[in-house]
Write a protein that binds this DNA or RNA. Structure first.
Lengths: 339, 339
DNA sequence: TGGACAAACGTTACCGGTAACGATAACGTT
DNA sequence: AACGTTATCGTTACCGGTAACGTTTGTCCA
């Protein structure tokens, strides 16, 4: 079906114009709903647009004027990460409903990949860019500066953003859980994390937990970082390893909920009483924790809200409407049954 | 930083040309590595390109000729689905490495949304399109036909594709499991599925399982479809409900591995012996099933391979190289410990 | 009745690349 | 030395929209 040789062209403005007996400028005006045409000509034009199946040519439109296109670049660390997947769905819907087209990419936590992606998207002169990590290469920063377009950093909150920032305070979310655990009477915690990238920096909610827990008088007894994905299995076996090594800990703080669920599963299999023998706390807010008989104590992250607000902030800026540079969305500590 | 009024322009070909003392056509040739220039001028040009920080303008390039852009549209049902996330990562990497830019979208199993997305992307005159579902609206089909560009359908295999298809035979994957279970001696199966879309059609691997199992003499005793996401919890509680209702079933086939893990977890909590009391089988191939003490019996889907092969097939077609219209990738039945 | 004014169009120029073709110089060949 | 060939480079035209501006027509009021 696709003929690489002679490309079948869909009708363009000139053909519509000719068919409707007007100039192509009038057709352009009708399609963009700018004023300067009568109702009669509008109907004539729209008839031909329907009949000929006109598809707008955004390339020509974006090329015409020196200003930017209707593309918006969106870059996340990983597409297979559930949290970013949820945020992306929200961003995708919001951006499209506002008349732009998201161009989604990922960098897998490699700065050079982010840089390469940015160059690709900038060569398409996007209207704006959305990034989800705080740390960028110098070249990336320079490219962003030179582009002169609105930028939203949208996952972890940045109090001194490049341009705009929408997100939550990751450190605080961990800090609150640390303090919460401390108040509940726990004093000897194990921390179970996982990362497939060896040199990855420690997530800030874990830093926050350590601060909150130790401030309350608690002690971090173990801190294991498995060289693995943050999976159910990692939580399952990490818990076994940690609890077998030392009976002296009275709670475990997990890097995320999936791992916590693995830990919970292991404990239930061993008839360990939760939260009496051991307390468990996760992070992230799994979509359906509340239907579990034993509700997981965790921190809920409003992925949907972050996506919506960040996309809206960007578009408002594009329309030269007033916007906040920094929008903090609250995380919510869910005081469940496991701690 | 972003000035909406006077847009800061990065250098264009003319400025590079003037700085290097050549024509802009020569600069164009150097940058695209077409021949027609000497090594000396190449160095002169590249020096200025570096110095002025030239960013190619793909909009102008795509506009210049009547042919398509370097954009490739990719549409999946959901961005938060782990399987598609994995496939997308593979597609993203492959497409970018071949010099194109993927434009990822989702339709959430709503035909009109797919249609709207397609119109958006087609208005950018993409070089090709990749779709991951078999069923499309009539308008979608018409749009694809008229576009005259290569199309890859890339998840479930289609033996009569619109253009090209890369994927696995979903029915067969279930059929094999059904036959496998039958041969192992199971005869009374329960099926546990889930879908948040009420009117969704039944997944084909479940159809296949039914055929394979009943062909071998087995009976499908229960078939529950929870109105929920395919989650760990859905598997956990669905299993409880199903086993409490009737003791007569000797195995459960789950819609996916996450649900199967939930079921496994529930059974372990109740000290039900797997696979003696009840056999369990999943679908999808979770990334780390092999490290679990009890390896889940399931069907592994090569998400990474599908992504890579489908992106490569599309690009080969774009380059007018020979390609297969239908590429079947095999699923693998993992004969684990739970069945 | 003429002139101011606005609505409803058409004309022109331009965006930044690239294909096609033309021009020049260098080089080899007989 | 005359000629053909090739490498290297410049010139021109064009892609499909849109901003800016010009033109026509109609309307309304002094």
């Amino acid at each position: 079906m696709p003929e690489n040789t002679t490309k079948r062209q869909t009708a363009n403005l000139s053909e519509i114009a000719e068919a409707a007996g007007v100039s192509k400028m009038t057709v352009s005006r009708v399609l963009r709903d700018k004023d300067g045409f009568s109702e009669a000509t509008r109907q004539k034009v729209m008839l031909e647009v329907e009949r000929l199946g006109y598809l707008p040519n955004r390339i020509a439109a974006a090329f015409g004027q020196t200003q930017a296109s209707t593309l918006i670049g969106v870059c996340v660390p990983r597409l297979s990460n559930h949290f970013f997947g949820l945020a992306l769905e929200s961003i995708d819907r919001t951006i499209q409903s506002l008349g732009f087209l998201p161009v989604i990419g990922s960098h897998n936590q490699v700065l050079q990949d982010e840089e390469a992606w940015l160059k690709s998207i900038l060569s398409w002169r996007p209207a704006g860019v959305m990034l989800s990590t705080k740390h960028h290469s110098n070249t990336t920063l320079q490219l962003l500066r030179d582009a002169g377009i609105p930028i939203v950093e949208f996952w972890e909150l940045s109090t001194s953003p490049l341009d705009m920032s929408v997100g939550f305070n990751q450190f605080d979310s961990g800090f609150q859980m640390g303090r919460h655990a401390s108040i509940k009477g726990y004093s000897r915690a194990g921390i179970l994390g996982a990362s497939h990238v060896v040199e990855a920096r420690r997530p800030e909610h874990i830093e926050g937990f350590i601060k909150g827990f130790t401030d309350g008088g608690g002690t971090i007894v173990h801190h294991d970082v498995l060289n693995d994905a943050e999976s159910f299995y990692a939580g399952f076996y990490g818990t076994e390893t940690m609890l077998n090594r030392s009976e002296s800990i009275d709670m475990i703080y997990y890097q995320d909920d999936t791992m916590a669920l693995g830990g919970l599963s292991w404990c239930q299999g061993k008839s360990i009483r939760i939260p009496d023998d051991v307390g468990l706390a996760g992070w992230g807010g799994h979509e359906a924790t509340s239907i579990l008989r034993m509700e997981l104590t965790t921190t809920s992250i409003p992925t949907h809200l972050i996506g919506k607000l960040s996309a809206e902030a960007l578009v408002r800026k594009l329309r030269s409407e007033r916007t906040e540079d920094v929008t903090a969305v609250p995380t919510r500590l869910i005081d469940g049954d496991t701690l």
